[in-house]
Nucleic acid binder design. Structure first.
Lengths: 154, 154
DNA sequence: TATTGTTATACTCTATAACTATA
DNA sequence: TATAGTTATAGAGTATAACAATA
């Protein structure tokens, strides 16, 4: 069974063979940053998924619901209530697409733009704080490695 | 609002400001590796959490339930059904701890050891495949960076 | 026939509070 | 009083199948 690390960084117990697995470390690090994100956006009512949707729509005005879902890895069926939530809160404008009457064309409502800006700056501030002991090169390198992993999606 | 990247690696739509956020990339990469993990363990009935629990118990025979949860960031209340599941499937032995009769002492049952070994080699094979275009140095560097982020947990 | 969005549904994960039994 | 495990419960994320309207 190869090498079984005894403790690594753990303070209380050994994590055993998990230590060599990228998946384990990704899961834990993602949770830490995700929780920090939640604290950053506390009080806004915006969750990580919703923020991601706002960002995609912001960068692609007029995009339709399905395309947003594909960009974020969210299934069609699960997009419905998320978009409803943002439309109901007047953060997103939804209208039937001119070119394809099956689809909806999404744009940020004025309130959505303000909300997105606010959430973005909160998020950046929190990430800068949380990741302050990573050098700028390390941070870039990390994002680059994560992008390459993401590209392996199937 | 600083720089708004237009496309980065995206093929269909721009991800906008998400591109500069570590949290976004962590979330997506973690999902990719997690899905790959699920495929690797398809048919075993073992999910990522359960595998993590088996690994902790394997590395710390006799450990109690709460300590496993703390090591993995799982709340006490949520440990109960997970441990029940593993005990019911004869993968884990659970007995009242000698030193503290409130606690349970957990060890891998023979079937649990076999299952863990099997899952571990499947997982390693899948990770090696999925991450084959990361050099060994990059993989180590990635794990090191993720560990440092995890250490910021609060 | 294929695609966009929808509904219904179910499973997993996560979070909180209140309880018991032991310490 | 504090801790180990339990129960109940609720919210959120994710997955599948089947449907209507449109392409």
């Amino acid at each position: 069974m190869a090498s079984v690390p005894t403790a690594s960084t753990s303070d209380e117990v050994a994590i055993g063979n998990l230590d060599g697995l990228v998946g384990y470390h990704l899961r834990r690090a993602s949770a830490v940053v995700g929780n920090d994100f939640s604290r950053a956006l506390d009080g806004t009512g915006i969750r990580q998924v919703l923020f991601n949707i706002l960002s995609i729509v912001n960068a692609n005005p007029g995009i339709n619901q399905g395309a947003v879902g594909r960009a974020l890895g969210i299934q069609r069926a699960n997009m419905v209530s998320l978009i409803n939530e943002l439309v109901d809160r007047d953060l997103l404008d939804r209208k039937t697409a001119a070119e394809d009457r099956r689809a909806f064309s999404l744009t940020l409502a004025p309130g959505g733009e303000a909300m997105f800006k606010d959430c973005l700056s909160r998020t950046r501030a929190h990430e800068d704080q949380l990741l302050s002991d990573l050098g700028p090169g390390e941070r870039t390198a990390l994002i680059e490695l994560l992008s390459r992993i993401k590209a392996k999606e199937r």
